[in-house]
């Protein structure tokens, strides 16, 4: 007897949010466009009712990003999970050059209208690439984003890790190696 495929009963796992926007799919041009799936559909701040949707999308996008790193880049340099009930504070580990450091991200009350604030406490001592932050104290500097500013309300925490944190860590580790600190 032939098997009849029932799509509504199969494909979506329970944790998958319903509204992920295929943002940018129509103009795939560069490697970075591979990350179109790291965009979120819902625009809501942590204090708003729709935040639970947005938070689910953030978790979903992050899981896809980690999968990408694990299976395609073979370099799972980040592991991070929400550690507050509101999913506005995320903590984990960042890895490079055989070392591992704690990382902390805070999604402020105005997120996603502003990018997350990120701190890697141990590396803060070894670089001037940091700025003062009203919530985190010292955080990694994202002033260079002014040159090619890409952040918008749909960008996700995962995209921020890809486009901001990964480059920041690479550049700081490179400096530390050159100075013989690593």
């Amino acid at each position: 007897m032939a098997y009849r495929f029932k799509p509504t009963a199969v494909l979506l796992p329970a944790a998958m949010p319903l509204r992920i926007r295929d943002y940018g799919e129509a103009h795939l041009k560069t490697d970075d466009d591979l990350f179109y799936f790291l965009q979120c559909a819902t625009v809501a701040t942590p204090g708003e009712p729709a935040w639970s949707d947005r938070a689910a999308e953030e978790v979903y996008a992050l899981d896809r990003f980690i999968e990408y790193l694990r299976f395609l880049e073979k370099n799972e340099w980040i592991s991070i999970r929400p550690t507050s009930a509101a999913k506005s504070r995320w903590t984990g580990k960042v890895r490079n050059a055989g070392k591992e450091w704690d990382i902390e991200l805070v999604l402020k009350d105005s997120y996603p209208h502003v990018p997350p604030a990120c701190r890697i406490p141990e590396l803060m001592h070894y670089t001037d690439r940091k700025v003062d932050d009203g919530v985190l104290g010292l955080r990694i500097c994202d002033m260079h984003m002014e040159k090619t500013y890409w952040w918008d309300d749909h960008a996700s925490l995962a995209l921020y890790l890809k486009r901001e944190v990964s480059y920041w860590v690479q550049s700081v580790v490179k400096d530390m190696r050159e100075k013989g600190w690593l």
């Binding site: 970075d32 040159k147 918008d152 690479q170």
Partner: peptide, 22 residues
């Protein structure tokens, strides 16, 4: 500001040469 409309217009900057924040 074209760079703000489409994230693919310009790649993110790699700050490997200097790049002090102050």
């Amino acid at each position: 500001r074209p760079a703000l409309k489409d994230s693919s217009v310009a790649p993110p900057v790699r700050r490997e040469n200097g790049g002090a924040c102050h």
